[in-house]
Amino acid sequence: MIKAYIRWIGNLSRLFAILSTILIILAMLVVCQMILMRYVFRVATIWQTDFVVFSATAAMFLGAPYVLLKGGHVGVDVIELLLSDKSRARLRLVGAMLGLIFCVIMLAATWVQFHEAWAGNWKHSSVWAPPLWIPLLALPAGFAMLCLQYVAQILVLTTPGMHAVVHDPLAAVPAVSQNQSNVKEYPR
């Protein structure tokens, strides 16, 4: 039961991560399209700036749960290193609880923000004027997912026999864990 929850939440976070990555790629492509249109064809670019800003920003909030899953949000581990295994586990639990509290608070706050934008039909003040609720939706979605991911972590920490993956520094490192096979033998 617990295992199933943890697995499911992990997969859901991965799904968000894929969405986030796609948004980053789209932002990159649209920036290039904008430069091309303006520099080569000298035509007006109306929607590109808003699109790029909002998709990249939304991507950051949507990607956050996956980064939590992978222990990629850096934290201070100095105290942890000084403690015994048992106290370390307890400290991690406290940290996870506090993280959960923050994410719950932000879930409430960003929901209020999203709901106002939706109900008030707020637009971004630009020529394109996209409805603000679309990018703002990423915030409550991201924080809700962060809450679920934190609950999963707390379950991992409190259920005996489950290995915790909190602050795995390797995950924070770009591409360290991947492509090892690509590294060529060094000439001696």
Partner: peptide, 22 residues
């Protein structure tokens, strides 16, 4: 796999930086 690895690691580091900034 190779290309998705590039994007994956870029996404992770960007999110880490931008969350701290926000």
């Amino acid at each position: 796999r190779a290309v998705s690895g590039i994007f994956g690691s870029a996404m992770r580091e960007s999110v880490m930086i931008m969350m701290i900034m926000a």
